[in-house]
Design a protein around this nucleic acid. Structure first.
Lengths: 111, 111
DNA sequence: GGAATATAGGTAGAACTTCTAGGTGTTCCA
DNA sequence: TGGAACACCTAGAAGTTCTACCTATATTCC
């Protein structure tokens, strides 16, 4: 009943992943950590959301992955943005701005 | 290919409906029109999204409906906010603020 | 040495929302 | 009288995200 509930990503997950990847090559596990850190723990990205999302973005040609070795000697898939992915990120950011503007218009309405 | 695509509500639909209903008793068809008008056509709420959402909100005890007659002499279900619905709206607005703040933190990050 | 924890990858299936595409009937106006 | 706008609705598909699992390796602590 009174339990804490995990936060919904509300359709922003793809954009957030693209943005974090745009900062430089990074592997999946670190993407989740970064999103959580930067958002000050608001987003707690579960692996069951993360990996399907990464595969989806790769399938669409927005991300490209290479197996490399991390600093700590582990095998990990490093993701990078494709040119298509960069355009997609721009489009999503623009649309996010329009969406939040539209929501703000409605939330500000008073009778 | 180059066609216009309908806009996603990205999980905001419930909040938007609750907000519009909070402005005063209103029937479903008019809710969709208002959301579209106030958002300057950004949101184009389809009936197949609208009515299931209204029933969902009513089932959860956030909305209450009464059949009445419109000014133009038609039967319509007028929706109003329950006390529970008002609390839910406040909670959703608060969470929306936190969500957009968290997204903004990530989008503003530069390497 | 052995156990626990953190790191790193993943899948399966359910739950939920939203969309597409239909359907019914009424009132108004040309 | 016939079409557009109004007003209600459902079914089924598509898509995302969640819960709950799984594997394996490196590090740290007892």
């Amino acid at each position: 009943m009174g339990e804490e509930k995990s936060e919904f990503l509300k359709g922003t997950l793809d954009m957030l992943i693209l943005k974090v990847v745009a900062l430089g090559p990074i592997h999946g596990y670190a993407i989740a950590q970064r999103i959580q850190q930067i958002s000050r723990d608001f987003f707690q990205l579960q692996q069951g959301s993360l990996y399907p999302a990464l595969h989806r973005l790769e399938d669409r040609g927005w991300l490209k992955a290479d197996w490399k070795t991390t600093e700590t000697g582990r095998d990990a898939k490093f993701y990078g943005l494709t040119p298509k992915g960069r355009k997609q990120l721009e489009a999503e950011v623009e649309n996010w701005g329009k969406l939040t503007d539209a929501v703000a218009l409605i939330l500000r309405t008073a009778e």
